[in-house]
Write a protein that binds this DNA or RNA. Structure first.
Lengths: 202, 202
DNA sequence: ATTTACATTAACCAATTAGTTAAACTATTT
DNA sequence: AAATAGTTTAACTAATTGGTTAATGTAAAT
């Protein structure tokens, strides 16, 4: 098992950690260098500036957040209920493993929304098939009338927000971290049930 | 109409703007002083340090975000549907008027979750009445089984997240800001309809 | 009017920051 | 082996930052 990262890779790893933890404004190049175990001048040798280094880390983070394979779920041939269940389950599971990334991305985008444009040249977000399916379900009177966009926004809202708002939710509703974590674990299924019931015609 | 703010008030206004726009790490005391039209030394004279100034701004922001009158709606004598409609409508309207505050609060809390404890000593969040009402509705077989906490989390998720994720939503789903704003305006009613349908038994 | 209290100023300070530089080191090519 | 290319280092730089200080100005109390 080869354990030898290149200097560039060491820098990227350390930078990701520091930027996600402290944000662009709070991150320090010397800290990144210390974490990577290298001399700070190398950061500029390889990446030229703090902002350029940040852009690379940010782009990688946001591409992972959008997660092409979740788009794949939406566009698969499965029925709508299964899709929603899979999407919710997997999305929550992925964020569980990267709990600080949503806050990082959403905040840095709120500070500088233009950053998203560099990313979108390279990510293909095409949900036409899902849209068609939804239209069909509506037309067949199987579900309420709702746009694909709004349904996805609702789903993502309920998947992501409890992570983004963890300190508030923990402080307001739960006395300890274990209850919070139980809530999150349950939401892998409760969110999809909620959504499926929400779109059901009654 | 008296237009004369005290120096303290000028500082607080300028600080709020700068902290919300740039965050604690990115905000600059000199900028706050410039915006307030005062000498920078006054920031320390009146508020002692950057962090103390931030704490005051932060506490005010988070108390407004939690909005006691929305708790009041939850605990009022209205029926459940009306409560949900009122809550959603008013919450979205309030955030529309302070669009950058959720990101600010959620991010700063993610960086330093302990900050919430100073706030919670002073805000009374008591939703017992709402909980009882929900229990009754469940017991009467009027709605699905769901905890008050989880219902509120779902509601807040769908109210807040589209603001927090504005740049992503705009870039992915809408070509222009007008469509995004139309979406938000519609959600004052579409979110509550979605929620009400979601908890409705078949 | 004088004294005391409070508010404000301009200059200053030590530490930190992102970035630069020239020399030294290591790897590759001739 | 020498020359060239690429990598790394330690020291340095100018600017910025949060905070301090002593003097001055203003308001309030005596």
């Amino acid at each position: 098992m080869v354990n030898k990262l290149t200097t560039e890779e060491k820098i990227l790893q350390a930078a990701e950690q520091e930027f996600i933890e402290k944000g662009l404004a709070g991150a320090r190049m010397q800290q990144i260098a210390d974490t990577a175990g290298i001399n700070k001048a190398l950061l500029h040798y390889y990446y030229r500036s703090k902002d350029k280094l940040f852009e690379i880390v940010f782009k990688t983070a946001i591409q992972n957040f959008l997660i092409p394979k979740l788009i794949k779920i939406l566009n698969s041939n499965n029925n709508l209920e299964d899709k929603i269940k899979q999407f919710v389950y997997q999305y929550i599971a992925v964020i569980q493993g990267n709990m600080h990334i949503p806050n990082f991305i959403l905040y840095e985008l709120s500070i500088n929304p233009m950053r998203i444009q560099n990313v979108f040249k390279e990510v293909n977000i095409d949900i036409e098939k899902f849209k068609e399916q939804l239209k069909q379900e509506i037309s067949n009177k199987n579900i309420i009338e709702i746009s694909a966009e709004e349904l996805i926004i609702n789903i993502i809202s309920m998947c992501v927000f409890p992570f983004v708002a963890k300190p508030i939710i923990t402080a307001v509703f739960y006395n300890n971290i274990e209850d919070y974590e139980k809530l999150i674990e349950n939401r892998k299924t409760s969110v999809s049930n909620f959504i499926i019931n929400a779109i059901k015609l009654k």
